[in-house]
């Protein structure tokens, strides 16, 4: 059936809107940010240029390398902790629990916090971990300790706890999804062959769930790497992260080119990780077949 020309024009117009919008307001800004990363700062102006000075500075000045390395370390620790908490939970839901109702309920209970304000979830740890905070005062009140422990607040441990708390659902979701897809017959076959639960886990479940682990780990890593809130709320003087550096470059330090270069580094890292995850997921899907 042929459509009238006016309706064709309307369709074209309607479809040009989202394409134009995303191109102009999303793709162009990312490209511009990458470009600004090569500009120079001639205080108080930023001059278009093409030079690698900003990147050189990021990789050589210890002020920046320390923070970048620390952020990588904290993101890795958060990923490890989230995996330790998340994997057994997902395993329990899929393989140990027999009731579908209970399984859905607990799964929902793990996901629901994602809907509760992310800022508030970070904030609660500020009131829990402080010197006069809920944890210390409760321990003193119960008579377990005499003086407040300052092992928790305003340091890297506090950040790891807070970020693990915030991002653990992102670890559980993909692992749960892959575990659920493992054919139950495979596990029965392994048990019929007289292989114990540990052997079944090592030879059947662990390799087949690797894709989900990689997806969850990458997601958790990227999110905690770029986190904006925890370092400000519970990180101390030794808790500066990449997010704080970026904030400073666009605020007090007023060095947008350097900030853009750093943001571009984060962008490249996340894209590389996403590519790797996609590859791992495809590889894992091939294993299942």
């Amino acid at each position: 059936m042929r459509r009238p020309a006016s309706s064709m024009l309307l369709t074209a117009g309607l479809f040009a809107l989202p394409l134009g919008w995303a191109l102009l307001l999303l793709i162009v800004p990312y490209l511009l940010m990458i470009a600004v990363g090569f500009w120079t700062r001639q205080f108080p102006l930023f001059v278009p240029d093409f030079q690698f000075g900003n990147y050189l500075q990021l990789f050589s000045d210890p002020q920046y390398t320390t923070v970048i390395l620390r952020t990588l370390k904290i993101a890795a620790m958060v990923t490890g902790c989230a995996l330790i908490l998340g994997y057994p939970l997902a395993y329990f839901l899929v393989f140990t629990l027999r009731s579908d109702r209970l399984r859905n309920l607990i799964y929902m209970a793990v996901i629901v916090p994602l809907w509760v304000s992310y800022l508030l979830r970070a904030y609660t740890w500020k009131i829990i971990l402080g010197t006069d905070g809920a944890l210390n005062s409760a321990l003193i009140w119960l008579g377990l300790i005499d003086t407040p422990l300052d092992a928790f607040l305003y340091n890297q441990t506090a950040m790891v706890i807070t970020l693990t708390y915030i991002f653990v659902p992102f670890m559980v979701m993909p692992i749960y999804a892959v575990l659920e897809n493992i054919p139950k017959g495979l596990i029965e076959a392994s048990e019929d062959l007289g292989i114990g639960p540990l052997g079944t886990f090592r030879h059947v479940i662990a390799p087949l769930s690797l894709g989900g682990v990689v997806a969850g780990a990458m997601m958790t890593f990227c999110l905690s790497f770029g986190d904006f809130v925890a370092p400000v709320l519970v990180g101390g003087p030794d808790g500066t992260m990449v997010a704080n550096l970026l904030q400073t470059q666009f605020g007090a330090a007023l060095n947008w080119p350097l900030g853009s270069a750093l943001a571009t580094l984060v962008l490249i890292m996340v894209l590389a990780i996403l590519g790797l995850t996609g590859w791992a997921e495809r590889a894992s899907a091939r294993n299942l077949r």
Binding site: L26, V28, F225, G226, F228, A243, V270
Partner: peptide
């Protein structure tokens, strides 16, 4: 992929890109 990118990218990279633009 570009439309989906802000979901996996730390929000502040998107914020900085938009601020520049």
């Amino acid at each position: 992929n570009a439309i989906l990118l802000p979901l996996s990218l730390p929000g502040l990279v998107t914020g900085i890109a938009m601020l520049n633009f």
